[in-house]
């Protein structure tokens, strides 16, 4: 067990060691208990100001981060690109440096371009937390997913996890694969060949195009959202119709019951009900979809707490 994170930023799961992830989980356990108290607030980050900069739409992630920050007593400023000077042509580094000039210590950023967080971390003097960068990574989602598996099954090592659906466009998938592999889980990716990255097997995962077979194999199925907004950007559609996708790769009650064993169902949200998963499964007894959302706040509190505190980290003066 390490006693401090090995990184100053959280740009991707790639930057974290298994010990880092374990430290985040241990810390999140403490915050989960805090969140069950009548007063769900601790003073740890009362000297820290955090800017949430969202260049892409988000509901769950932004609210989750904001709640995490407020429950750590940090000061919070929110910024979304629709109402900002980026519309007037300001560059990313200028935008962020202007925010930092107002004495901001940490930046939580979502951006449509892969690597935006990495780029920013090289040009500004603040801890950066990646809240999703294009199709690249979404590290806090992967952490809360693995944390939820650990909570439900008591361990992550050796657990068989299926990640189903639009792997190609999914930053959740990449971060999940990296996180689960680091923690010793077995991962199978399942989806149509057109939504599967070409070199997926290089990440140490199995690849399948047969959902029923994959469901029989796994302990946990993480049903990803079909990212309608990222399909066909280059004039190519990746599958013929949503109806056909739902028939081949959607999870409904009938399919679930045919597995012949209990598996845990996850979804990173937002759900396209009736496409990748039907309501009776998403809201059923084996779904931990809302637990994932609940755990998200505790895991994000842990990440912010660990990045803000510890050796060599001090409030900017």
């Amino acid at each position: 067990m390490s006693e401090a994170l090995s990184t100053r930023h959280l740009l991707g799961i790639d930057d974290l060691s298994a010990a880092d992830i374990e430290l985040i989980f241990r810390t999140a356990d403490g915050f989960k208990e805090v969140l069950s108290r009548p007063i769900k607030k601790v003073p740890s980050l009362r000297d820290t100001t955090i800017a949430n900069i969202f260049f892409e739409n988000s509901t769950r992630t932004r609210i989750s981060f904001e709640l995490a920050e407020k429950r750590l007593s940090a000061d919070v400023v929110n910024f979304s690109s629709g109402t900002s000077s980026t519309k007037k042509g300001e560059t990313l580094v200028d935008t962020v440096n202007n925010i930092l000039a107002m004495k901001v210590d940490m930046v939580v950023m979502r951006h449509a371009d892969p690597g935006a967080g990495v780029f920013l971390s090289r040009h500004v003097d603040a801890s950066i937390v990646n809240a999703g960068d294009g199709t690249h990574e979404h590290p806090t989602q992967a952490l809360l997913d693995a944390y939820s598996i650990r909570e439900k099954l008591g361990r992550v090592k050796g657990v068989k996890v299926a990640i189903v659906g639009d792997i190609l466009h999914s930053r959740v998938a990449l971060s999940n694969i990296l996180c689960l592999r680091k923690l010793g889980a077995e991962v199978t990716l399942c989806g149509p060949a057109t939504l599967m990255p070409r070199h997926a097997r290089d990440l140490g995962v199995h690849v399948s195009h047969d959902l029923d077979e994959t469901l029989r194999w796994c302990d946990v199925a993480n049903m990803l959202r079909i990212q309608l907004e990222r399909q066909g950007g280059d004039g190519i559609t990746n599958f013929p119709s949503l109806r056909e996708y739902a028939m081949l790769f959607g999870l409904d009650r009938k399919r679930y019951e045919a597995i012949g064993k209990e598996i845990t169902i996850m979804h990173p949200g937002p759900i396209n009900r009736g496409v990748e998963i039907t309501s009776d499964v998403a809201d059923g007894a084996h779904s931990i979809i809302l637990d994932q959302v609940e755990n998200g706040v505790a895991v994000r509190m842990a990440v912010l707490f660990l990045l803000a505190g510890g050796p060599g980290r001090s409030a900017r003066s």
């Binding site: 006693e3 430290l23 241990r26 403490g30 740890s44 505190g309 510890g310 050796p311 409030a315």
Partner: peptide, 13 residues
């Protein structure tokens, strides 16, 4: 918590 040589690991309440 910023001044300690190591990050404090929470116990249980």
């Amino acid at each position: 918590f910023r001044h300690r040589p190591v990050t404090a690991i929470p116990g249980t309440t």
